[in-house]
């Protein structure tokens, strides 16, 4: 039961990752795409990983009309423009894999 409630809560949460050379405006550009699609950012963390910039962003798609696959496409295009790799994945995938 508890498991089910948790699933419901995280149903529309996604995790966006950006990996690449750090440069001005990455977070701004990513947040613009998310805001334009009514996706609420819940948490952002970033770090430098072996000289690479890595950002992980958790967002809520509850009020968004866009499909995850379409969002992935948009983010991937932005990634190409900025010379970084941007991925978006459903939170359940991480929860299932890393939490027992």
């Amino acid at each position: 039961m508890l498991d089910q409630i948790r699933t419901e809560q995280s149903r529309n949460r996604i995790i966006v990752t950006v990996i690449g050379q750090d440069r001005v405006g990455i977070i701004a550009r990513v947040s613009t795409i998310l805001a334009d699609n009514h996706i609420n950012i819940l948490d952002i963390s970033q770090t430098i990983l072996q000289e690479f910039f890595a950002m992980v962003l958790i967002a809520d798609m509850e009020k968004s009309a866009i499909e995850l696959s379409a969002l992935k496409e948009k983010l991937s295009q932005l990634g190409q423009e900025l010379g970084v790799k941007i991925e978006a994945q459903h939170e359940d995938v991480f929860r299932y894999m890393h939490r027992i």
């Binding site: 995790i15 990752t17 963390s45 990983l49 890595a54 995938v93 890393h98």
Partner: peptide, 16 residues
């Protein structure tokens, strides 16, 4: 929350 390493591990598994 998830650590950055956990997140990147999953992304790498699917992507690469």
């Amino acid at each position: 929350m998830y650590s950055i390493n956990e997140v990147l591990e999953t992304i790498r598994m699917v992507q690469e």
